[in-house]
Nucleic acid binder design. Structure first.
Lengths: 220, 220
DNA sequence: TCTAAAACTTGAACACGTTCAACTGAACAT
DNA sequence: ATGTTCAGTTGAACGTGTTCAAGTTTTAGA
């Protein structure tokens, strides 16, 4: 038991040292040798605990997801309508990641699902599933009812929307990322409105086309 | 004039050597030393002509855009309805980039507009503008008329849509990228339909929200 | 307590992208 | 012809992420 704890502690120390250096001087400007030295271990040790420099960022992301779960629970409890619920989820994430906003860009660079560090890869599937459940709860706990086949796809669609917002935010260079806040405010309104009117008879053809599209794209 | 021509020829030789190696053994697996050797110059020479390894890919992309222009002209001449016109533009691009599909992933890795190699950076603005004009022509040459304020934003929206399709295609691992073809077929139908019905009174509020959103996001 | 295996640690070594001071030779003015 | 300039060229050297053979420490079974 001693060893496990010590190993965990070393790993945590390396991760913490890396995050502080990344935050202070940026990802590219920080070397693995610096990280190891700051953590008080040899260069090779960092590679014993992390597959690569990028993998450290993924570990941070993973840790963040766990730490955010109670905050996301609270966010869902704070509002009843869909716009408020999804908006609260997004606000938690943006606030949590704020100190490391630039750092997430290194993850965004891996859109390739083949890449281990991609948010779309098989390795990150577990995280993805858990994350989508919050959007499922955002929907089921709201007053909106979607009876058509569109309903079952909405959690995934909202999750994808979230990924787009975060990507926009990472590269948003406006002061305090105000543009992202505007984007969220306005786009959420559109999405909720679209979901509401999606059951109108007039939009039935479009709705079916969208469902068809989503099912095609998601199929393996 | 002799000197200029010789310089151009050397640059072209390095670019060609790089592209052949990238195609045969992949981007990561090809070293700058190999490229220089294949082009019959010293390693440093490659850096005299190209700022970096990534910059070679951008040069290829730039060259591609120029070579594709007549093909895109022909594509616009091949159809009258919007779906056919935009679909033809996309088909030209996908076919042209087919041999180097994986390579484009290295460009997609730079979503950061701050990065010189990003398709959204200031350095690539000229290319972007020229490209958007094809979508403007796709619209004006079609039978669709959009009278609302939405009209002026449609070329940019279609261009962004194109970027999304190409990104999807780059990482599409289905055989012969069939899923991308399905995505295009189905999503184009949705887009055209949405544009058509966007002038309906019922959708006026949503239309205004979308325009407002686009204007907010595009503002500097 | 002893010992073999497993877990962990080390820092030199490797291959890579990139830089740079030094060199070459063609073009041109005098 | 000679000198001057400068675009073009060179390959060694630098700093980086990463690997690895060799060590050290810890665990666990006898």
């Amino acid at each position: 038991m001693k060893a496990k704890a010590k190993s965990d502690e070393t790993r945590a120390r390396i991760l913490a040292a890396a995050m502080e250096l990344f935050q202070r001087q940026g990802f590219e400007e920080t070397t693995m040798r610096e990280i190891a030295a700051a953590a008080g271990v040899a260069t090779g040790a960092a590679y014993y605990y992390f597959d690569s420099k990028d993998a450290i960022v993924l570990a941070f992301y993973d840790q963040s997801q766990q730490e955010m779960e109670p905050l996301l629970d609270a966010a869902l409890a704070s509002a009843r309508n869909l716009k408020g619920r999804v908006g609260a989820l997004l606000e938690v994430k943006l606030q949590y990641f704020e100190p490391n906003r630039r750092l997430l860009g290194t993850l965004a660079a891996h859109a390739d699902p083949e890449h281990r560090l991609s948010p779309f890869s098989a390795q990150t599937e577990e995280m993805r599933k858990r994350d989508m459940q919050f959007f499922e709860r955002a929907l089921t706990g709201s007053r909106i009812r979607v009876n058509s086949e569109l309903g079952q796809h909405l959690p995934r669609i909202l999750w994808m929307y979230q990924m787009g917002v975060i990507l926009f935010w990472i590269f948003d260079r406006s002061a305090a990322q105000r543009r992202t806040r505007l984007l969220v405010e306005k786009s959420l309104g559109i999405i909720v409105r679209l979901i509401q009117i999606s059951e109108f008879p007039l939009l039935r053809p479009v709705r079916r086309m969208v469902v068809d599209l989503v099912e095609t794209v998601m199929s393996d």
